[in-house]
């Protein structure tokens, strides 16, 4: 019985994912995604890393981009496929059951925009390093990386306040959806390390939620002489 209740909740989690995330971020995520996809133009090639139920993928496709969404959760992808059909975006969207470790199979400089919503914070430090290196490789020179994610606020007081405020939300979200998120640390520094420069960042929720745009810098090891 005890395990039964637990499992019943767990198996229904993908269906509740979006609602849980909205609760955890006070509804910020949807607005952040809307803002981010304004960077995308019709006809661009876009990759969505960790597309989940398709929130960013479908927004980008609705703007006329050609989007490839990857996620490692088959149940989430099934929901994304249903939505894609409802919105008649099959022609512009391609979904694949792949994890970040398979990004090396993507073409070099094959995308104008790479985007990711609430995925980087789920990755281990090794995975994040690997992913960002691949993002740099997959982007066209001058291409954009769009990120909406939870980050750890800077400053001791802000961090403490963030943890205190977040604790009851984490419990509530876990009870409702068995999902939670973790904050990414030093994201801007990590981007910089691999040659992605942050050109715009908006923080909200006491500095704990970031909505950032980074641009692929010219490769310092192979400057203009290569062209």
């Amino acid at each position: 019985m005890s395990t039964y209740v637990l499992m019943r909740l767990l198996e229904s989690a993908p269906h509740r994912y979006d609602r849980g995330i909205q609760i955890l971020t006070f509804g910020h995520v949807g607005r952040a995604y809307d803002r981010l996809v304004r960077q995308i133009s019709p006809g661009q090639r876009v990759l969505d890393i960790g597309c989940g139920t398709g929130a960013l993928t479908l927004r980008a496709a609705a703007r006329g981009a050609s989007v490839r969404g990857i996620d490692r959760d088959a149940e989430m992808l099934a929901i994304a496929r249903e939505r894609m059909a409802q919105e008649h975006l099959e022609d512009r969207v391609e979904l694949a059951d792949e994890g970040v470790a398979e990004l090396d199979a993507e073409p070099a400089a094959g995308y104008d925009v790479v985007m990711s919503g609430l995925c980087f914070s789920e990755l281990s430090p090794d995975e994040l390093r690997y992913t960002l290196t691949q993002v740099r490789r997959m982007l066209q020179p001058g291409g954009l990386l769009l990120v909406a994610d939870e980050v750890l606020p800077s400053g001791f007081v802000a961090r403490l306040f963030y943890r205190v405020v977040r604790a009851p939300m984490v419990v509530l979200t876990y009870l409702l959806t068995q999902q939670t998120t973790h904050a990414a640390r030093r994201l801007a520094d990590r981007l910089n390390d691999v040659g992605l420069a942050v050109i715009d960042e908006q923080r909200s929720l006491l500095g704990s939620f970031t909505c950032l745009v980074a641009r692929r810098q010219d490769d310092p090891a192979a400057p203009a002489a290569a062209t």
Binding site: R72, G99, V100, A101, E102, S124
Partner: peptide, 14 residues
């Protein structure tokens, strides 16, 4: 615990 998790640690751990 799926193929993705095994692939990930094999490829990203070095």
């Amino acid at each position: 615990f799926t193929d993705h998790d095994v692939v990930s640690v094999l490829k990203t751990s070095g």
